[in-house]
Design a protein around this nucleic acid. Structure first.
Lengths: 250, 250
DNA sequence: TAGAATTTGTTCGTATGTATG
DNA sequence: CCATACATACGAACAAATTCT
């Protein structure tokens, strides 16, 4: 039951020994990312100390970002954070493969709808024009990362829906229409709370935040190709903008 | 008590009439940004309809982003959103003045501390080196927008603390040390939930998300000047990255 | 900090009007 | 005229989140 021995009067405070013990369990992987720690009471029993002593250890690790405490839910090992570099040529599939990770996308729905004002403005269409709406869920190493809704001009890309369904890659599918290259025009970033659908798909506690991006991709002539809104699991991603490399073209 | 008349059998569904009435009140300003609507029961009484009918109207406006509903708290008119363009030369004071808004910064604390690993790495100092820590709260039009902690190398900028206290502008204060220009090297963006201090300072409900940015500013020789972490009230800001203008130097 | 009060969310059931074929 | 499907509207009860005392 125990396995970890603390030594009193060793010159190292008990709570520090506990913190070190927990840190080691995390490093060893016996407490993996996302894992929930035993309750404070259980830990206190296991280390044969008062609950306050455990709390002191947890507080220290929590300040250092090595644990995440949620009132009423428990204490958790923070999930591994994925770094998404935002560049003019951001591609989901590329981003992740660089880091020896395995990206994967699931298409949840494709349909033709009429553009509302926002969609029309971003795609430079008239309001009411037909657009292809694609809802998709992206995974990295089988962890859900983002839930996206994208809009494409339906007139310019007929049957893009099935094409994306086959290739599971926007980049690939667009090639069939002669788009060999495109680039990110703009990105807007906000923080939101997830709705029920989002927290379900992203397997996210409903009180955890969402990092929401709104982007417009354009072809080399500057014509808008895609307007997309993605919600990222806030705990699992960090968007990074490297101002120096941002517009370096290959 | 009433003031708004609904007409049955007019060919327009009751809930649509209610939605239009509420939308107009928002447009007129009698329901200003951030305002809380009467409860569903009160609205039902006022319009002499069932609570479901009110809910249908609110759901419609909520989907369109014109209302924000929070379980247990109420229904609110979304706050006006501030757009923060992220560029290589982002300056808080400049950003906002362009839009005829009034920025304002409050210094909460300045002290000399020793750099931990993260701070040292970002400022390219050795761990334990002295750094100036500045905690500040930024306002726009007297609304609290962001709570920031910044670190500067103390050796290079002695007495920067008082200088910023006087000028209330980092740009101004740095000029005293011969720094006429500096630029943003990188920005990292995450979504977090606020801690008690953050929600208090930002006057943010504790269940509303925080948009957190981590930035490094460098001088023209590439030497790190400032490492800063800012928490933005997620409801009140949107960060925008214009890929095309990002590195256009004046 | 424990429980009451408030407010929105969900799910039943019922009834009516309207468009379609 | 009938059958069906769908949107609209009302009523009641309970669940869940938040706030207040």
């Amino acid at each position: 039951m125990d396995g970890t021995k603390l030594s009193a009067n060793s010159g190292v405070a008990l709570w520090r020994q506990i913190a070190l013990a927990l840190e080691e369990e995390i490093a060893r992987g016996s407490l993996g990312p996302g894992a929930r720690l035993p309750t404070e009471i259980e830990l206190a029993k296991r280390f044969s100390v008062n609950r306050h002593t455990v709390r002191r250890a947890v507080a220290s690790l929590s300040e250092a970002g090595k644990l995440r405490v949620e009132q009423g839910r428990g204490t958790f090992v923070p999930e591994e954070i994925l770094h998404f570099p935002l560049t003019e040529r951001t591609r989901f599939t590329q981003i992740v493969e660089d880091g020896r990770r395995h990206p994967h996308r699931e298409i949840l729905a494709t349909e033709i709808v009429k553009a509302d004002e926002t969609i029309a403005a971003n795609l430079q269409l008239r309001k009411g024009a037909k657009v292809l709406r694609i809802e998709s869920l992206s995974f990295v190493d089988d962890r859900p990362i983002s839930l996206s809704v994208s809009y494409f001009p339906a007139a310019r890309f007929p049957d893009l829906g099935p094409a994306i369904g086959e290739t599971l890659s926007v980049t690939e599918a667009l090639r069939r229409y002669g788009i060999d290259d495109y680039r990110r025009k703009s990105t807007k970033i906000t923080a939101q709370m997830p709705n029920q659908e989002q927290s379900r798909h992203l397997r996210l506690a409903p009180n955890r935040p969402l990092l929401q991006t709104e982007k417009v991709d354009i072809d080399l002539d500057g014509e808008p190709i895609e307007y997309g809104i993605s919600g990222f699991a806030g705990d699992r991603v960090e968007l990074t903008i490297d101002m120096e490399r941002l517009t370096d073209h290959p």
